[in-house]
Write a protein that binds this DNA or RNA. Structure first.
Length: 864
RNA sequence: GGAUACUUAGCUCAGUUGGGAGAGCGUUUCCUUCACACGGAAGAGGUCGUAGGUUCGAUCCCUAUAGUAUCCACCA
C-alpha cells in the first residue's frame, strides 16, 4: 500500500544499486536496432553542478525512452583527464599538503595525479548514481586509459605523416601562470579599461619625433623597427631613417608597410615580432631579428636592462616613469580594449614566440564544410547552431596542440641526442637510449575529439564500433561547440570517413534566479546535491528538462522544483486512489471490453490516444518541454480532474461488469502515465510501477505504451463531453450566483443523442444535484435556467427573477454575438472564401450555424 | 566591428508548418467532500517591444528600429 504522501527519499533509497546489480543498463539485445550515445566526459576536477545534471538527464531521458521503444541502447560513460585543470588542481592540493612542487619530478607528479583521478572517479560515480543515470558501466572509458592513449598516438603519427601535424616556431598564446601554450579558443577576450601610452621617438639626424602609442610598453625592449604606411605623406620622408627607442635608447629602423592603418592612432607602429602576432608577420616579411624580452613566467629577461627579473606590470610602471623623466612621454589615454585571458588561470595571456606543435585546420575544416552540405550531415537541434559551427569552420587558424604540462598524452616524438633528428612514432625507437622524448603533452581536446569512436575501439575495428558507430545523438551545451563538437566532427570525418553522430542536441546554461551565470567566484552556484536532498532527484530532473526550449538558457527556480514535486505527488496520489479502488473489485484480467465502455471511458481513451501521439511526436524531436506539457495536461485535466472524479460514480453505482471494465480503464491509464513519466522521473515511476497489481521485475524492462485501438461510439463521446461541459457550466453558475455548492437543485436534460443513466448519476454526484430527468426538449420546464450546447440543452431548476435572467442572458448574448460577428466577417469576405482552406471554411460555417441557433434560443428565453 | 538569441498576464517562461492568447508561481472568492490542503472549485489579469510591409487573415513571415543578453573578431 502506498503512503499518503510521495516521499522522495523512500522512493529513491537503494533503487539505483539494484538496477546496476540487475544490469538493466548494460544488457544488449543484438537482434534489436542499435541506438547509441556517448556522455560528454566530465573533468575529473570538480563537483557535479546543475549544468551536468541537466546535460546528463537529457541523455538519460533519451536513453530510457529509446530503450522502451524497442532499441538496443548503448549509453557510454567516461571521464576526461582535463590536462590543465587537473594539473593545476593537483599542484594546489600538493602545495596545501606542504609538498614542494618545484622539485617534483614528472614521475612523482603523475603518481599523485593518478591517485587524484581515482578519488574523483569515485566522486563522479556517486554523482551519476544520485542522478539515476542509465549508463552502461561495462563500456566505461577514460581519456588516458590504454586504448584511448593508443588511439591518440596513432592519430598523431598518422596526421604527422600526412603533413596535418607539424612543428613550428611562431607566436602563440602563453599562459605565464600555468606555464604552457594555449590554443586560440582557450583565450577569453575581455573588454578592459587600460592605459594607452603615447611615447615620442626622436628621429636620428632630425629634430622631429615620431609619436607611437602602445598598451604594452614592457615589450618595447624587443622592438626591432618602426613601421609607417608607404602612402602616408606625413612620414614618407622618414622611411629608411632611424628613431631612438625611448625604452633603451637603441636606434630603430623606420620601414614602410601597407599593414599600417594611416588613420589609426598616430599612424606609426612599432614592431615587436616576438611579442605580437601581427608584428611577427611583418618581422618574417622583412627578415627582421626577433629578440625576446620576457621569460616564461612573464618576468623581464636580460634584454630589459635595468628591469631584469621584474614582473611585466612592475616593469611597465617603472619604464613609463623612466620615459616620462626623459621627457618622452607624450600622454596617457584611457582606452577600453579586448585583453586575452587564460580560460583556466584567468591571467592575461602573453603572445610569445615559441616552438610548438600544430594541426593544420584548413583540410579538416574543408571536409567538415563539405559534410554540412551533403546528405549525410550532422543535424543540429536547434538548427541555428549549425550556422555557428559553419562560421567558425570558415575562419579557422591552425590549432596549437602542445602543452607544457605533465598530465596528458605525451607527444610521441623523439629527438636524437646527437643529430637532433626528429622521429615521430607510436612506438619508442629501438635504440631509445639515443633519443629524448618530447616533453610536452597534447591538448586535452585533441583526445576528446576522438571520443565517440575511440571509446568504441575504432582502431581495432571492433564489433562495438561496427554496431554503434556513428552514434545517434550527442547532447551538449552550446558553450563547447567550438572546443568539442566541431573538432569531433572534423576528426571523425578525417579518420573514420563518417560523421560521429547523426544529431546534436544543444542545450543552454543554467543561470541563477536573477539570470546571472552560475560560478564559483560569484558564489551563486546551487548545489544539486542539496536540491536532491530536499526535493528528490526526480523533481530536479523534471524541472531541468521540461521548462526549457532547446538551446535556451534556464533560470534556476526553487519554486519550479516545488511545482515539479507537487506534480509528482499528484501522480502518486492518483495511482494510490486507483490501487485503493481496485482492492474491492475483482478483476478478471486486464483486457478492456470495448462493448462495456461508458461514455467517460470512451472519452479518456480517445484523449489518451491523442496525448500519446503528441508526446511521441515531441519526443522524436527531443522537444521535452512540449512532450511533458502534453502529458501534464492529460494527467491533470483529462485524467485527474475529469475522468478520475467522474469514474467514482461508476465504481460506486455501476453495474458489476461495467464497474470492472471502468476499473480496468483506470488501471490502464495509470499504468500508461507511469510508463510515460518514467524516462523523466525513473525513481517514482519504478516505485509506482512495482505497486501495480501486475508488473515485470522492473519498469526498466518495460516497453512504451501503445495506442489503444478500440471502436469508440460517437454518441458516447458526445455524452462525455456533455457531462464535462455541464459540470463546468453549472459550477460557474453556482459560484457566480453565490449558491452553495451543496444546494440540491434539480436538473433536466434534453439531447439530440441518447443519454445513458450513468450521465445523470455522474452529474448528480459531482454537482450535488437533486433530481435529474432526461426529457424531450419541448418538455423542459420553461422557468429553469438553460445551458445551451450545440447538440444538447440542460435546464437547471432554479428560481431567478426576471432581472437576473435578463442580465445573465444578455451577458451570454454578448459573447455569442462577438463570435457570430467574427464568423460573419470571415465568411462575408470573398477573398477568404476563395483562398482559405476548405476545411477551415466548413468549420467556420458550422460554428456560425451553431452559434446562431444558440443565440435564437437565448433570445427566446428573454423575459418579455 | 560582425553574428545570434530574447522582448507575450504582477514574476519566470511556453506557444511546431500564419486561422479564436497558455502554464507555473502570485492574486480574489468559495470548499477541510471518502486520491491528493504538496489539494479541489470558480474567477480576475495580456492593444504578444515599437513602426512599416506581405497576406483574405500576423504573437508567428519580411524590413526597419529600441532595449537586453551571449558568442565571434590580431587593429598597434
Amino acid at each position: 500500500m502506498l503512503d499518503k504522501r510521495y516521499d522522495h527519499k523512500q522512493v529513491e533509497e537503494g533503487r539505483y544499486d539494484k538496477w546496476l546489480k540487475e544490469g538493466y543498463f548494460s544488457m544488449h539485445d543484438l537482434t534489436k536496432t542499435p541506438f547509441s550515445l556517448v556522455i560528454p566526459p566530465p573533468n575529473i576536477t570538480g563537483k557535479l553542478h546543475l549544468g551536468h545534471a541537466w546535460n546528463t538527464t537529457l541523455q538519460d531521458i533519451i536513453a530510457r525512452y529509446k530503450k522502451m521503444k524497442g532499441y538496443d541502447v548503448l549509453w557510454l560513460p567516461g571521464m576526461d583527464h582535463a590536462g590543465i585543470a587537473t594539473q593545476a588542481r593537483v599542484m594546489a592540493e600538493l602545495r596545501k599538503q606542504g609538498i614542494d612542487t618545484k622539485n617534483l619530478t614528472r614521475e612523482q607528479f603523475l603518481k599523485y595525479a593518478w591517485e587524484h583521478k581515482d578519488t574523483f572517479t569515485k566522486t563522479i560515480h556517486e554523482q551519476w548514481k544520485m542522478m539515476g543515470l542509465a549508463l552502461d558501466y561495462s563500456h566505461e572509458r577514460f581519456t588516458l586509459d590504454e586504448g584511448l592513449s593508443k588511439a591518440v598516438n596513432e592519430v598523431f603519427v598518422r596526421y604527422y605523416n600526412e603533413g596535418l601535424i607539424y612543428k613550428d616556431k611562431r607566436i602563440i598564446n602563453w599562459d605565464p601562470v600555468q606555464m604552457t601554450a594555449l590554443s586560440n579558443i582557450e583565450v577569453i577576450h575581455k573588454d578592459e579599461e587600460g592605459d594607452f601610452f603615447y611615447f615620442a621617438y626622436p628621429i636620428v639626424g632630425s629634430e622631429d619625433k615620431l609619436i607611437i602609442a602602445t598598451t604594452r610598453p614592457e615589450t618595447m625592449f624587443a622592438d626591432v623597427a618602426i613601421v609607417v604606411n608607404p602612402k602616408d605623406e606625413r612620414y614618407k620622408k622618414y622611411i629608411g631613417m632611424k628613431a631612438i627607442n625611448p625604452a633603451n635608447d637603441e636606434p630603430l629602423i623606420i620601414i614602410a608597410d601597407d599593414y599600417v592603418d594611416k588613420d589609426f592612432g598616430t599612424g606609426v607602429m612599432k614592431c615587436t615580432p616576438a611579442h605580437d602576432p601581427n608584428d611577427f608577420l611583418i618581422g618574417q616579411k622583412y627578415h627582421l631579428p626577433m629578440p625576446e624580452c620576457m621569460n616564461k613566467d612573464a618576468t623581464m629577461n636580460e634584454l630589459a636592462k635595468g628591469y631584469v627579473g621584474l614582473d611585466r606590470y612592475v616593469c611597465r610602471a617603472k619604464l613609463v616613469e623612466a620615459i616620462k623623466n626623459k621627457g618622452l612621454l607624450v600622454k596617457i589615454e584611457k582606452i577600453v580594449h579586448a585583453v586575452g585571458h587564460s580560460e583556466r588561470s584567468d591571467t592575461v595571456v602573453e603572445p610569445m614566440l615559441s616552438s610548438q606543435w600544430f594541426v593544420k585546420m584548413k583540410p579538416l575544416a574543408k571536409k567538415a564544410l563539405e559534410m554540412s552540405k551533403s546528405k549525410e550531415h550532422v543535424e543540429f537541434i536547434p538548427a541555428r547552431f549549425e550556422q555557428v559551427f559553419i562560421r567558425w569552420m570558415e575562419n579557422l587558424e591552425d590549432w596549437c596542440i602542445s602543452r607544457q604540462l605533465w598530465w596528458g598524452h605525451q607527444i610521441p616524438a623523439y629527438y636524437h641526442k646527437v643529430s637532433g633528428e626528429l622521429l615521430v612514432s607510436s612506438t619508442p625507437p629501438k635504440d631509445i637510449e639515443n633519443y629524448e622524448r618530447d616533453k610536452d603533452v597534447l591538448d586535452t581536446w585533441f583526445s576528446s575529439a576522438l571520443w565517440p569512436f575511440a571509446t568504441l575501439n575504432w582502431l581495432e575495428d571492433s564489433k562495438d564500433y561496427q554496431r554503434y558507430f556513428p552514434t545517434d545523438v550527442l547532447v551538449t551545451a552550446y558553450d563547447i561547440i567550438f572546443f568539442w563538437v566541431s573538432r569531433m566532427i572534423m576528426q571523425s570525418l578525417s579518420l573514420t570517413d563518417k560523421i560521429p553522430f547523426k544529431r546534436v542536441l544543444i542545450h543552454g546554461l543554467v543561470r541563477d534566479e536573477h539570470g546571472k551565470k552560475m560560478s564559483k567566484s560569484a558564489g551563486n552556484g546551487v548545489d544539486p546535491i542539496e536540491v536532491i536532498d530536499k526535493y528528490g532527484v526526480d523533481a530536479l530532473r523534471y524541472f531541468l528538462t521540461t521548462i526549457s526550449t532547446p538551446g535556451q538558457d534556464i533560470r534556476y527556480s526553487e519554486e519550479k522544483i516545488v511545482a515539479s514535486s507537487n506534480y509528482l505527488n499528484k501522480i502518486w496520489n492518483a495511482t494510490r486512489y486507483v490501487l485503493t479502488s481496485l482492492e474491492d473489485i475483482k478483476l478478471d484480467g486486464l483486457n478492456i471490453d470495448e462493448n462495456l465502455l461508458t461514455s467517460i471511458d470512451s472519452l479518456i481513451i480517445l484523449r489518451f490516444n491523442k496525448t500519446l501521439k503528441e508526446v511521441e511526436d515531441a519526443m522524436e524531436r527531443y522537444d521535452f518541454n512540449m512532450a511533458s506539457t502534453h502529458l501534464y495536461n492529460f494527467v491533470y485535466d483529462d485524467f485527474c480532474s475529469s475522468y478520475l472524479e467522474a469514474s467514482k460514480t461508476i465504481l460506486r453505482k455501476g453495474e458489476e461488469k461495467v464497474k470492472i471494465n471502468t476499473a480496468k480503464v483506470l488501471l490502464k491509464m495509470v499504468t500508461n502515465i507511469i510508463k510515460m513519466i518514467y524516462p523523466y522521473t525513473p525513481f517514482i515511476a519504478e516505485t509506482l510501477y512495482l505497486s501495480l497489481p501486475s508488473h515485470l521485475a522492473s519498469i526498466n524492462l518495460e516497453t512504451y505504451p501503445e495506442e489503444i485501438s478500440m471502436k469508440l461510439d460517437k454518441n458516447l463521446i458526445k455524452e462525455a463531453n456533455l457531462i464535462y461541459s455541464s459540470i463546468f457550466a453549472i459550477r460557474s453558475f453556482k459560484a457566480e450566483q453565490k449558491l452553495r455548492p451543496h444546494d440540491a437543485l434539480n436538473l433536466e436534460i434534453a439531447a439530440k443523442f441518447d443519454v445513458s443513466p450513468y450521465a445523470s448519476l455522474i452529474l448528480k454526484d459531482l454537482l450535488h444535484l437533486g433530481e435529474i430527468n432526461v426529457l424531450n426538449e419541448d418538455k423542459l420546464d420553461p422557468s429553469g435556467k438553460n445551458f445551451i450546447f450545440s447538440e444538447a440543452k440542460i435546464n437547471l431548476i432554479v428560481k431567478q427573477d426576471d432581472e437576473e435572467i435578463t442580465t445573465e442572458i444578455n451577458k451570454q448574448l454578448e459573447t455569442i454575438e462577438k463570435e457570430i460577428l467574427r464568423s460573419k466577417k470571415m465568411l462575408d469576405n470573398p477573398s477568404f472564401l476563395a483562398k482559405a482552406p476548405k476545411a477551415l471554411i466548413e468549420k467556420e460555417k458550422e460554428k456560425l450555424a451553431a452559434n446562431l441557433s444558440i443565440k435564437e434560443q437565448l433570445v427566446s428565453k428573454l423575459p418579455k
